Simulated assay, not measured.
Amino acid sequence: MVNGSSAPGHERCAHRKVRAQAALWTVLAPDSSADDLRGLARWLADGEDHAQGYTRTQAIWDDLGDVLAGQETIDDRELAVAEKPGWVRPAPIFAMAASLVLACMIGFLMLARPVQYGTDVGEQRVVSLADGSRVTLNTSSQIAVRMSDGRREISLEQGEALFDVAPDPARPFIVRTADRYVQVLGTTFSVRRDERRLDVVVLHGSVEVGDADSAKALARLRPGDRFRERASEPGPILDRPDLEVETAWRNGELMLDQTPLGTAVREMNRYSETQIVLADPGIGKLPISGVFRTGDSASFARTISLMYGLKISKSDETVVVER
C-alpha cells in the first residue's frame, strides 16, 4: 500500500495546479517566443504528470476547436468594428481567461477522455497515476484511466493488473471489468480478466465487488480473499489462495503446485508469442510442480519432456509436445 503520510487534499491541489498550468501553456504555446518554448520544455521535463497533463489538455483543446469550427462565425460587421484601427486585442488577458475556461472544462472532460496504458505479450509495466496510486500491468493487458476531483476510475479492458491505491476517502477508486466493479478507498489488490474468468485478490485493506449493471454489491473481500468467477461454474466462489503464487508474475515467475499440465501450458502461453501445443489431450492431465520463468516457453517444454519422456518439435511460432 502506498504510504498515506501525504494529505489527499494536498495531492488534489497539486493535481489542479498542474492542470491549470497545462491549460495556460496550451493557450500560449502557438504565439510563444523561443524563450517561452524553452520554459515549456523545462516544465514538461519537470515531471511525468506535466507531460501527461499537457498532452491531454492539447487533445481537449483540439476537440474544442473542432466544435467551435462547426458553429456560426462572427458577423463580418461585428468583426470589422471589433478590429477597427486603434483597437488592440488584450492577448495576455485573453490567454489567461481562455486558460481558466479550458482548465475548468478539462475537469468535466477528463472522465470522457481516458488515458490508455497497455503491455504487449511478455511485457510488464508500472504506471504511476496522478493521485499517487501505482498500477502494475501484467502481460498483454490494457487499462483506461479516468480521473476527476470526485472519482478515480479504471477500466480493465483485458489482462491482469495489480493496484496499489493511494488513500483518498473523498475520491473512491473504482476498477471496472465487463460486468463487475471493484471499489476501494485505499488498498492493494489485483484483478485478472480473461474471456472466461475473473479473479479479484486482496493483498491489503478491503474491497467491494459488485454487479456493474445493477450496482449491487456481491462480496466484500478482506486481505487474503479471492473473488473468483468462471464461465464453466454456476456462480462466483470466495476462497483464500496462496498470495505468493497469485502475485509471482510480478517477479517474472509462474509457480505451480500439482497443476494439470494443460492449465500450466495456458498460463505459460500468456507470456510468449511462441505457443506450446499439447498434441495429445491426455498429456494435459499430467501434474506439474515448480517455479518457471515466464516467457521462456522452450525451457518449460524441455522440462516437461524430460519429466515425462515426451517428444518436442519446434517451429517459428509453436512448440509441439507429444508422446
Rank of each mutant, 00 (worst) to 15 (best):
R266V: 03
L261T: 00
R250Q: 11
M307D: 13
R240G: 01
A248F: 07
Q258C: 07
P236Q: 04
A301Y: 04
R270P: 04
F300D: 10
G295S: 01
I276S: 10
E267L: 13
E273L: 14
P241Q: 04
L254S: 13
L256A: 09
I237F: 00
A298P: 01
K285M: 12
A248T: 05
D239F: 03
P236W: 02
S305P: 13
V291D: 08
G295P: 03
E246I: 10
D257M: 09
I276G: 10
I237S: 01
S289V: 06
L238W: 00
P236T: 01
I304S: 05
I283C: 11
A248W: 07
R270Y: 02
E244M: 00
G309S: 07
E253Y: 04
G295V: 01
I283D: 12
E244W: 00
V245E: 12
M268K: 04
I288K: 12
T263L: 13
S289Q: 07
F300G: 09
V245W: 00
G262C: 05
V277C: 05
V277P: 06
T259S: 06
D296H: 06
M255Y: 07
G235Q: 08
L238D: 00
T247W: 06
G252S: 11
G284D: 13
G262T: 00
D296P: 02
A279L: 14
I288Q: 12
P234Q: 00
G235N: 05
T263A: 15
T294N: 06
L286P: 01
Y271G: 08
V245C: 06
S272Y: 03
E246A: 15
E253C: 07
D280M: 09
I288H: 06
L278T: 05
V265G: 03
V291E: 09
S305E: 15
P260M: 04
V265R: 03
R302E: 15
L261W: 01
T247I: 08
T247P: 02
S305M: 13
L306D: 15
P234W: 00
A298Q: 09
P281I: 06
M307T: 14
A248K: 09
S297D: 06
N251W: 02
Q258P: 01
M255C: 08
V291A: 13
P260R: 05
L254C: 10
